[in-house]
Amino acid sequence: MIRTSGPLVEVAELTVRYGAATALDRVSLTVGVGELVALVGPNGAGKSTLVDTLSGILVPASGSVTVRGRLAHVPEGRQVFGDLSVEDNLRLGGWRIGERDTAAVYAVLPALTELRRRRAGLLSGGEQQMVAVGRALMSRPDVLVIDELSLGLAPLVVADLVRHLRELNAWRGVAVLLIEQNARLALDLCSRAYVLEAGRIVAEGTSAELAASSLVSDAYLGGVVVDGE
């Protein structure tokens, strides 16, 4: 799948504006093949803007976004097709590449198998998040961009999802860019991380470095998860 050498996702000096307001200011980051990368930051830092730009929904004012390989997006708030069955949700995930066979996804996320005929809108939050991940996997991605994995989910459910992501990464080599408010979770799952505040990258490094730095530990790991404003 990977056509050229270099990182899977390469964002360089990216600036995105909404009218006069600058949502992202010269943001640069990379995600390598098979890498687990986190982007943490408070509400309103520009995380979702970055995700929407990566999947082509927003157009940058300047800078560039290069995606080598296939990128799939698990949007914030899960955004399943509530009126459709789990099976139909998964099939739609393969729309872009014309993939209809859902068996591979059930193999990776076996919990979905018994839900396949249920309407997605009637599932629990954790089940919906799993549908959203499964739907993204249908496009055979090289990198999954997950926007707020843990938002509104119980800790046990999150732990289960994290286990699935680790397996996906280990077995299939799927890279992950995890956008999270919950820095503890993000740094725990990922090997490398960026900190985004007010549209700018204010810190980057390995998860261990960042967890140790006072900047991050004070603001994001102070025992409680920062809820943003």
Partner: peptide, 22 residues
């Protein structure tokens, strides 16, 4: 049908439809 499902998907959740490339 795929096309019919895609139409239904737009009706159900237009944002998600864009996310998956419809």
């Amino acid at each position: 049908t795929d096309l019919g499902r895609a139409l239904t998907a737009c009706a159900s959740n237009p944002y998600a439809a864009r996310v998956i490339g419809i």
